[in-house]
Design a protein around this nucleic acid. Structure first.
Lengths: 186, 186
DNA sequence: GCTCGTCTATTCCTAAGTGGAACACTAGTC
DNA sequence: GACTAGTGTTCCACTTAGGAATAGACGAGC
């Protein structure tokens, strides 16, 4: 089967499974990118536009999505082969551990290279950025209301969003504490 | 200047600044990779061996590290130009926001594709993986003791390690709560 | 009615990063 | 004396990421 695909392929493929109702969703590359930007980016990646289109043609080649010409452009929908491949991937492949690329943590590590005040300023900026991100995720979370009860379409997305909100809230506390500790050092 | 380098370059360059004493450190590519694996991987990436060597030759080309032939092999040490470039990068460039690639969160998002029990099992496995990672970080943290007071060599690395430990501890709580919520759904 | 900017839709090029294979040398250890 | 593990390094093919470039459609204001 088409098992040997990178995680991002399945992530994008998975986005096709959140239909409004019962009929399969038709999405252009552009729409898929927007959808990835809205939710996927918080705990996976927001693939570049170029990546999305490349992924779509690969998935189409393997018969996991089927393209059709719409007046909007080329739209894609998930096939039943796509659905099985996705389920097989969920069941049979190892998830692996998470990877975090945290520029603030990295710069804090190298804090001995600059004055403490520069580090403090950076951490304060990070608190602001954190609040912005949190705000964006709150909006996502709100948009799921109404279909987030057990068994409903957005149950799982809402669980993940709650996780993310917890994460942001706790990171805020940690960073505030770091600021306190560095201030005491001086 | 050599400002236009990816973050990973500076991350690796930064690892040269943790000297045992006053004299600059000489590291082989292999040692640098080990060092990156030990700490950098928790909040940035562990670049592949090939990447480390590629990075070292690029940094050498730009005069940010200087190679010398040792009986162990080729060792590199940071130059004063390297130090200034690193400090300039710390001061002048935008950190950007963190990127998290979390396969468990991604699979939780797609939880509607499998039975709840499969999701629960995955989350339990994640708890175990989390404990292992935490254990590894605890060891790193312990190895910094003795030089982690304000002003000492490993002050900043120890702050970052504490951050990481907090992060793992809190993620454990969140995942435990998710398990509880999903169990209630059934 | 025309122009300007923004949104939608797509492609192309290059840089960055991964993983694995291959090779060589050293140091135990059974 | 062979054999495993650790150190040190290079090469190659492949995948992913980021940015720029292009182009049509659509509404806003002059």
């Amino acid at each position: 089967m088409g098992q040997d695909l990178p995680v991002t392929s399945f992530a994008l493929l998975g986005l096709f499974t959140f239909g409004e109702g019962d009929r399969p969703q038709k999405l252009t590359g552009y729409e898929l990118k927007r959808r990835a930007d809205a939710t996927l980016r918080f705990y996976w990646v927001s693939p570049a536009m170029s990546q999305v289109y490349k992924e779509l043609s690969r998935l189409a080649e393997r018969g996991l999505v089927s393209p059709s010409d719409d007046d909007r452009g080329t739209t894609y929908s998930i096939t039943s082969a796509g659905r099985s491949a996705l389920e097989a991937w969920m069941r049979e492949s190892e998830p692996g551990f998470s990877v975090l690329k945290h520029p603030i943590a990295l710069r804090l590590l190298l804090g001995h290279l600059v004055e403490p005040s520069a580090t403090i300023a950076m951490l304060h900026d990070h608190l602001e950025a954190l609040d912005k991100e949190r705000e964006a995720l709150v909006e996502v979370r709100e948009s799921l209301r109404g279909a987030d009860a057990p068994g409903e379409t957005f149950r799982h997305p809402s669980l993940v969003a709650d996780w993310g909100l917890e994460y942001f809230a706790h990171e805020r506390l940690i960073v505030e504490d770091l600021i306190r500790r560095i201030n005491q050092d001086e």
